[in-house]
Design a protein around this nucleic acid. Structure first.
Length: 120
RNA sequence: GAGGGAGGGCGGGCAGCCGCCCCGAACCGGGGAGGAAAGUCCGGGCUCCACAGGGCAGGGUGCUGGAUAACGUCCAGUCGGGGAAACCCGAAGGAAAGUGCCACAGAAAACAAACCGCCGGACCUUCGGGUCCGGUAAGGGUGAAACGGUGAGGUAAGAGCUCACCAGCGGCUCGGGUGACCGGGCCGGCUUGGCAAACCCCACCCGGAGCAAGACCAAAUAGGGGAGCGUGACGAGGGCGGCCCGCCCCAGGCUCCCGGGUAGGUCGCUCGAGGCUCGGAGCAAUCUGAGUCCCAGAGGAAUGGUUGCCGCCCGUUCGCGGGCACAGAACCCGGCUUAUACCCCUCCCCCCUCC
RNA sequence: GGCCCUAUCGUCUAGCGGUUAGGACGGCGGCCUCUCACGCCGCAAGCUGGAGUUCGAUUCUCCAUAGGGUCA
């Protein structure tokens, strides 16, 4: 494992970076749905978690979609100390209405996903 | 003080905590969204493809001069239109090269012609007028638009038929201007509709595609070419031969090499028609000299999340609550167009009041 | 990110600068039938928005908006 454990950081090695990686996660049947977010996930063998976001054009124009991604990223990185040792690839897809939600609300939903995964 | 016109600036500020992307000998330092980054409507650089030259087709532009790498952009002017003015708007060449169109109405929509009329003559007449022939285009009415306008002469009635002035056209000419054009003089025939963002003519410009361009490295799998080794044992195919034997070719196997090329990776990728300061030329657009600075380069895509204070705006039960535009780089530049809260600055016009 | 295309009743579509903007399906009303369907007759409803050219624009030009296609 990494000698320096991440605290609240969210560097590239904890992210999904390729279209094929996203497609692999989306092909799996595992999902968890909260009020504003959909979590798709599949197991990996890396010893840590990887997270990616998919924000479709349905949410609005570029400035709105960027805002959603930034708040999602902030929500996830604040959970990284607990989240990072899950052996999962996760794709988080916002549902309609996410644009008006604050970062702290999205973080709470991600936390409920985290609790669910820990019980598995 | 009220209203209006032209142009420009800004695009909330400071601090704490936690983060992200890129660069650099790297737990530290440096940099990190816009005036529109947007729409993709034009133009250029760059890259690949095509190409002797010229023409045709197709597309674009369209007053003049200038600026520029280039433009459909910009600047300065000309003319036309709007406005009381400041000022604004204009795809603004050619309609006496040709073709076409001009609905409805109207007699007639561009060749000239004549419905109601007006006038003269002949004939008829129930004395109201009618028919025919000829002259005419002043008046009526239609239309978006009707073949110059006003006045006088002239006439049977009229008419550029004649004359004066005006408008317009053509030619010659003088002055000013680089030019578009402007101002003036003389002469002529007397008068010519609109539409070219209809076809078209004329002048000028344009090869095509686009960084998902393109260049390099290069798995796995399939297939191509070549070399070597080996098999050809039953049997099949081809060649030598009429047939057999025999020999050769071919086929399957293994090893190696070569080339194309997919996934993937690297480059292209940011120093540039660059920014800032001070000068110089020019009315200006812009050009130019010196000094100085390095200022995003990702690739499921960073430039943020959160808290506090202050500043505006709205609401307020005076505790506070809510809001702060339009909008997010993707090869790079020059323009155009569109979106944009609050606030600030400069100049100009007109009106009112006061000095 | 680049390059293209389209826009006409609720839907699918015609439309030579002057049209009452035409048709089909659907809708509504009526006739027919014991009733429904079929059939017949009738009605309502439309040019994406803004400028410009023209006497006149759904049509021509420009700008915008909204959809859609295509290239890894």
């Amino acid at each position: 494992m990494d000698p320096e454990r991440p605290r609240f950081g969210f560097p590239k090695r904890y992210r999904l970076l390729k279209r094929t990686q996203f497609l692999a996660v989306q092909a799996s049947p595992n999902r968890f749905v909260s009020k504003h977010l959909v979590f798709l996930f599949t197991e990996n063998s890396l010893g840590h978690v990887r997270v990616g976001f998919t924000v479709s054009k349905r949410h609005g124009k570029a400035v709105v979609r960027n805002g959603i991604k930034r708040r999602l990223r902030s929500a996830v990185r604040h959970l990284m100390p607990e989240l990072h040792e899950l052996n999962l690839d996760v794709v988080i897809i916002p549902r309609v209405g996410t644009a008006s939600r604050r970062s702290i609300e999205l973080q709470a939903e991600a936390e409920s996903f985290l609790q669910r995964m820990r019980r598995r």
